[in-house]
Nucleic acid binder design. Structure first.
Lengths: 296, 296
DNA sequence: TGCTTGCTATAAGTTTATATTATATCATGC
DNA sequence: GCATGATATAATATAAACTTATAGCAAGCA
């Protein structure tokens, strides 16, 4: 390749204008500068590219050949720059997010709403899945960042920023009124009809882990697929539901359900924003992350 | 467009190698030079293109985007240079020539043969046609150069280089033996049965012009389409043929025909190589022209 | 922890190449 | 034959890029 690609900019302009003088004006340099650049180019390629006439210049057949390549080459570069600017100014682009149902519903949604309002041109792709799947997607480069509810991220390449607390509660209806305003021992859960999530979920694992650390083992009467279901089961007094507080928020406010109180605090979990440490976020993704972190 | 396209060469190499140090080695410059060039590029585009890590660098999403364009852009330029070299070294290319039957047969053919022998990869396209058509093709850019037999080229944009003399002769067979070794006056042609080319040919016009300048007007008994035919007619003693000497060369040598001699020389015509003054020839075309001019 | 390794970044000074100004040269058209 | 409008050349100035030396930083390892 020739020593200085800048020469091609000169070549391109001269070919377009058919005159060194005009090209010089367009390039905002002097006419001799153009003359010398062309000379350099012709010397390096060992080919005469222009026929110099008294009324300007025009391409030789070889110059003509080269010109077509130079034109499309430079336009490619220019197009690349233009696309880059559009992405940088967020006129186009996409953000790929991995999130669980819970983080999406109780945390992410309002941010996505605001983001989309400000940047309607940016496509937002949400891949719904539990924590392990989200982390897998992250390392595979399929998502820009994720929002997970589990606190246990041990991959050293992943950075997790807690963005919100999550409180796990045991909720129940009037059938269990005697327990209201009483402070229970965790051990008593073993004798209550528990309604919880299935075993393969991270929320369930978290709770089981915590309870077992305190010598408590529960054998739920109902194991359901969704937290919403658990709340409904609890409302119908089928047992004591174990869910993140958010799912039962309304019922707790209305008094349909109440939360059991224990002599020991159930440690809070966090929603965490996870991203790859050694990978940069796209402008759009970074923008959304900033929005989340600034106003969390 | 960015101020210095050289930066893209650096960008491309760094992206390919994933390391400033390796890129510097490949570009035969120092590592700081690479670092500075990237910094310039990032500043000018106002975009971070690489994530710097301790084990090298890798592209940001924006860098990735730009990279695809830069890659194809630079490859385009490189491909252009490669094609140019191939044309310059005559590994590919074509030469378009306009020539009449006569110039082709009695002049050009051996040159084309030699040229093709030396440069078998170069396509040679010969467009057969009389002088005016050849000149028209030339100005239209349909041929690189032409070979014509007429001396009258008045277009100021066309350069005509005489390459060979052509002698017009009047030839006849034994029926006209009495005229052999006699020096005739041109006037006597008026009483001989002339065999000549059709009126719309430039050879015919040339001869008519010359004769009329000398007060002679001929009324041919035969007007034929080709000079070869004229020679055959003359051999059968149907009259006195007017042709370029080349057509009757063999017959004159064998004695089947002889040429009339006049007290006034018929001015010689020339085969001329015509090309456009203000247009450069392709390397291949120039090469063939040089071959012709060197050994004419 | 501290050491080594393998990177990139920064600073200062030098070199190189590119630009400018002034002027020469050349062909064209009036 | 001279004015015009173009490109080329020469000398000088300027600015950009390169180099060397060195700092800084993160990761891997003892």
């Amino acid at each position: 390749m020739i020593s200085n690609l800048e020469y091609y900019k000169v070549f391109y302009t001269v070919a377009k204008e058919g005159s060194l003088t005009k090209a010089a004006r367009e390039l905002h340099i002097s006419q001799p500068a153009v003359s010398q650049a062309l000379k350099q180019l012709e010397t390096q390629l060992d080919t005469v590219l222009f026929v110099r006439a008294s009324r300007g210049v025009h391409l030789t057949p070889e110059g003509e050949l080269l010109s077509s390549y130079v034109q499309s080459g430079l336009e490619q570069l220019l197009h690349g720059e233009a696309e880059l600017m559009r992405r940088k100014n967020m006129e186009v682009g996409e953000v790929r997010i991995g999130a669980s149902d819970m983080t999406l519903e109780f945390f992410l949604l309002p941010y996505l709403e605001r983001f989309h309002e400000h940047h309607p041109e940016i496509k937002v792709l949400v891949t719904n899945g539990p924590t392990p799947e989200t982390l897998q997607y992250l390392t595979a480069g399929k998502i820009d960042f994720g929002l997970v509810s589990s606190p246990d991220v041990d991959d050293p390449h992943i950075r997790a920023i807690p963005v919100r607390e999550v409180e796990d509660v045991f909720v129940c209806g009037r059938r269990f009124l005697p327990y209201k305003n009483k402070t229970l021992d965790l051990k008593e859960l073993e004798h209550l009809p528990i309604i919880s999530l299935e075993q393969n979920t991270s929320s369930r694992r978290y709770m089981d882990q915590f309870l077992s650390e305190n010598g408590v083992t529960i054998q739920p009467e109902f194991e359901l697929a969704g937290s919403n279901m658990i709340v409904q089961f609890a409302e119908r007094n089928l047992g004591v539901g174990c869910v993140a507080r958010d799912f039962a928020e309304q019922q707790l406010k209305e008094g349909t359900l109440f939360a059991l109180r224990f002599n020991q605090l159930i440690p809070k979990r966090h929603f965490s924003l996870v991203s790859l440490k050694n990978t940069a976020l796209s402008v759009a993704a970074q923008n959304l992350v900033d929005l989340i972190l600034e106003t969390r």
